[in-house]
Amino acid sequence: MEWRDQGAVISVRPQGETSAIIEVFTQAHGRHAGVVRGGASRKMAAMLQPGSQVDVVWRARLSEQIGNFKVEPLRSRAGVLDNRLNLAGLNAICAMLHTALPDREPHPALYARSIALLDALQTPGWPPDYLRWEMILLEELGFALDLTQCAISGSREDLAYVSPKTGRAVNRDAAGEWAGRLLPLPAVLLGQGPASPVEIAQGLAVTGHFLNRALEPTLNGKPLPEARARLLGILAKNGADQE
């Protein structure tokens, strides 16, 4: 068995003294693990950091084996290391991909958006893109939000809430006395208006609610990855500092 693909390293764990087990998110093979011989060496350390873009050749005798990766570096994303928000974004993306995606299942649309988002991390203004990326992640997990029209009235105007059960939008008037039980729908989730830190935080609360539901069997009662919580904390702090 052998294939070649490109992807982003999303996790690295030592294997023995000299090797490493890495997970790479690739376009055609999804989240795929493999052993890198010599992966613990100083020479390989810079290449095998989460977020690095690599070219990999995977080989195994049988498809169900973990197999070995031969890794070539394509580009480093080490530029995010000195900025706490950008680094938190990189950690959150890698941790969410590691937690949410099944093994070896291709998600080409999510791959394209993930790579674009990882590349955007070194430029300011990426947090709204991260929010949209989580919506695509939900779509890929089969929990797409339907924010095109009100689930009750069918109206496309004044959509102000999301049903926490169905993930469908609800019009402000139609929500009536149930408004308190619904999730606020920030305009940024509809692709409208400026993405203020408060709106992004509200949007991430919505996606977080549905990611928790989508990943319930995987998480087994545990919360979403700590890296995501840290990103939310930094975004909230930055938002508070701006106000």
């Binding site: 810079a46 290449m47 950091q49 570096p73 580009r75 480093s76 080490a78 530029g79 290391l81 000195d82």
Partner: peptide
């Protein structure tokens, strides 16, 4: 040097 190190050094 890898490009990440060169970038860090330049910054």
């Amino acid at each position: 040097l890898d490009d990440g190190t060169i970038g860090a050094a330049l910054r």
